[in-house]
Structures are given as C-alpha cells and as structure tokens.
C-alpha cells in the first residue's frame, strides 16, 4: 500500500504487476465508482488478471473513499480528475495510459481524457457516462436522496438495507452516508458545468463502453456510439449496474482486447500537451464555429 499526497487529499494507491519489473509494458489505471465503492472492486476481480496478462496495474481510492483521505471540501468533478493527473505525475508515468472506469470512475476517465487526450491511449468504461447535464441531474438526485435518508432516518434506512441486502452492504451504506453527510460532496459534485455533445465528438482516445444489458444506462449505448467514432459498446446480458463485480471474466476479456487493439506505443496522440488548455487551439471539428471547451475551469475554487 502506498499513500500519495495530491493537492488537498491523500490517495491510497495499490499497484500490481508481474514480478519481473515494469519497463516497457502498457499501464492501466483503474478508477472505481461513487460512495460505496473502492479500489477493492478491482483488486478482487479483474486487477490480478490484468497483471497476469502483463499489464502494469495502478488502482487508487478516490478522495473521500476507501482508505484515501476524506477532506471536508473539494469534491467538484475537476478535483477528482486533478487527483488522477497528480497520481500519474507522482508515479512517474509520463507516457500514455489506459483508463478503466467503473460508473463514476468512468465519468472521471472521460473528464480526464477530454482535458489531457495526449496522456490517454484508450478508455474502457463500465456502466458509466460522461458528465453531461443529465448525469449532473441524476447525481444531484442520488446524493440528495442519500443525504436525506442517512440524516433523517439513518437507523431505519440501515435496518432496511441489513434486512434486504445484508450486513456488508449496510456497513458500506453507513460509510457512504458519512461521506455525504460530513463532507461537501453532495453540494460540490453537482455544481459542474456539463460536457456538451460537441466536446464529446472531439474526444480523442478510443472508448469501450460496457453495460449491464438490464441497466437503465444501457439505453445510452446508441447515443454514445453515435457521438464517438472510435468506440465500441458492449451490453452484457443478464446484468444491471454491478456488472464489473458480477461478470468480471467478461469485463476482463473485453477490456484486455480493447487495450491490445490500442497500444500506447501505437498511434501518437493527435494533440501535443504543452500549451493546450481548453480552447487554446482553434476548433478542428467540422461545423463548430468555435471550440467548445471540453471541460470548464474548476467551479468555485476556494
């Protein structure tokens, strides 16, 4: 276990890889979901097999989650994205990496790739979506509901969860309730200027999107596929939102194939890193009079 300090948060990082050193291999960074999730969802599913397949595997807990620090403030999407950038710097991973994001971890992956396309070889998201206006509304509703239930009726809510979902889920829910109640996440994560379709059309790295075929999110597959020319959408039958932990073998196979098709040593990034802030270069997409900033500057920086 390693703890890495980024601006405003201490991040718990785990790394797996074959014993024979890390040189020259593809690096994959695994990003987990919101509230009840942690890097354990990868550590006990696909991560060991990614390492066995020869990848350098980096996992970390988002700020406020798992064994990472839980600051009172600083939960705008941009802060999560900045954590990823700081982590890559601190781990001295200057080349392009493959991002794998489950649920909210995929939202962070999209956001990072929009801001730093030159550092991303490929994106694989599981049950996830970019930070669009509809995502922001959904997250705001979810966080508000959790805050209400865990503030007003915590013991009743936990009793219900224990009875219907088991003690383990109840314990995770209690911890998630604390995150929502004791930090500004419910206020800050929702104050996010949404990403537009025009910005998504300019997304550079190729995107694999895996869905549980029975999940609501799966309805977005055609929409996402139409926006992203270099993408593949894969519905996994018989599963809902928890497809990563319920069907890890399938997710592993899809992601490994996607990474193999898009090696970091392959086609170079189309945009240089230096001097490219959002809007720093003229738009290159046809039909857009001006470049839409991929992701706006951070909201209400203290």
């Amino acid at each position: 276990m390693a703890i890495i300090d980024t601006a405003g948060a201490r991040l718990h990082v785990q790394r797996l890889g074959p014993a024979e050193g890390r040189g020259g291999r593809e690096t994959v960074v695994l990003l987990h979901g919101l509230l009840t999730d942690s890097l354990a969802s990868y550590y006990f599913t696909v991560a060991p097999e990614f390492a066995a397949a020869g990848l350098d595997v980096v996992m970390y807990d988002h700020r406020g989650h798992g064994r990472s620090g839980r600051p009172a403030l600083g939960y705008q999407l941009g802060r999560f994205t900045d954590d990823l950038g700081a982590l890559l710097d601190r781990l001295e991973l200057p080349g392009r990496v493959h991002l794998v994001g489950n649920s909210f971890g995929g939202t962070v992956s999209f956001d990072y790739a929009l801001r730093h396309p030159e550092r991303v070889a490929s994106i694989s998201v599981v049950e996830s979506e970019p930070a669009t206006a509809s995502w922001a509304r959904k997250i705001a509703g979810l966080l508000e509901r959790v805050r209400h239930e865990m503030t007003v009726n915590e013991s009743e809510a936990l009793d219900w969860i224990t009875a219907h979902r088991g003690r383990r889920t109840a314990r995770l829910a209690r911890s998630a309730g604390r995150l929502v109640r004791d930090t500004a996440i419910a206020d800050e994560l929702t104050v996010c200027a949404p990403v537009t379709e025009d910005a998504l059309r300019l997304l550079d790295p190729p995107v694999l999107a895996v869905y549980g075929a029975d999940s609501d999110l799966c309805e977005q597959a055609p929409w996402l596929g139409s926006l992203l020319p270099r993408s593949r959408t894969v519905p996994v039958p018989g599963h809902e939102h928890s497809v990563l932990v319920e069907a890890p073998g399938r997710v592993r196979d899809e992601v490994l194939a996607w990474i193999a098709e898009h090696p970091a040593s392959g086609a170079p990034a189309t945009r240089p890193r230096a001097g490219t802030g959002p809007g720093a270069r003229p738009g290159r997409g046809p039909g857009t009079g001006h470049r839409v900033p991929a992701v706006p500057a951070e909201v209400n920086t203290p």
């Binding site: 354990a40 550590y43 798992g66 064994r67």
Partner: peptide, 17 residues
Amino acid sequence: FGRDLEFESIDLVTLAG
C-alpha cells in the same frame, strides 16, 4: 473476516499489503 470482524473488502486489501 466479514461476519465477525466486520471487514469490508477494502480492509482485506490493506491486510494483503
């Protein structure tokens, strides 16, 4: 680990370390 010690999966990751 789970039932008696109330370990969560992230606790097992720490134990693995």
